[in-house]
Design a protein around this nucleic acid. Structure first.
Lengths: 110, 110
DNA sequence: CGCATACATTCGCATGTACGAATATGTACG
DNA sequence: CGTACATATTCGTACATGCGAATGTATGCG
């Protein structure tokens, strides 16, 4: 798998998946879901976002299989699809943190 | 680090990093760089993209520290910043592949 | 300097995306 | 059925993004 060239279609799918993660609001929602499943209104309350807005962003995350949902009567519970979702974010976070500490070193150095 | 809430600023940085990866053309460039450093024209030739376009996309990747660059006389060589860049893509690819094979199973099942 | 080559940037336009507000759907319950 | 509540969708608008074409900048060479 290492050195095969990916088809344009697969490439577009990958891009789309990253695009789903490229929004502050959606990352915030994923973050809130780390502690367990929540309903749309719960998420709206915790993130101070409008309900419609939360619902839309969740739809994007769901379409990209980053979250799962389950209807429970009048409520819909959303949860992280799996652990790898957070791994993705943490990989990026880790990079950012080491970059930031690099910057701090440089600034302190002068 | 596990359960701390990230600041809106850091969240935006993460989003921006994902956004840099959310474009077919840029993923294609990263893919071409797997085999080693290349110049802008090399990349343009291999991807059949316009030179200006390649240069722009490389600027985005560079700003997000996904590639490094080095001037060599008249040329500029671009290279992957590190191995983790590909890890990110492969994580997403792996997810996609298992999802696709799931779909194939379902289709075969009926 | 003048020219050629490689790379970067700007401009205009078409397309995509996020958001608030309003509205629709869906579910439970009397 | 009618009402209440949770969630989803639509619409209009403001703003971001990608691209081709043209132009600007940088480096090397005679």
């Amino acid at each position: 798998m290492a050195n095969k060239r990916m088809s344009p279609e697969l490439l577009e799918l990958v891009a789309e998946r990253f695009r789903a993660l490229s929004d502050r609001a959606r990352l915030r929602l994923l973050q809130e879901l780390r502690s367990g499943p929540l309903t749309v209104n719960d998420l709206a309350a915790r993130t101070e976002m409008a309900q419609a807005n939360v619902s839309r962003h969740l739809a994007v995350l769901f379409a990209n299989k980053l979250v799962v949902r389950e209807r429970d009567g009048i409520y819909v519970h959303y949860a992280l699809a799996d652990r790898d979702v957070l791994k993705l974010c943490e990989l990026v976070c880790g990079r950012l943190e080491s970059e930031l500490s690099e910057q701090r070193k440089v600034i302190a150095g002068r």
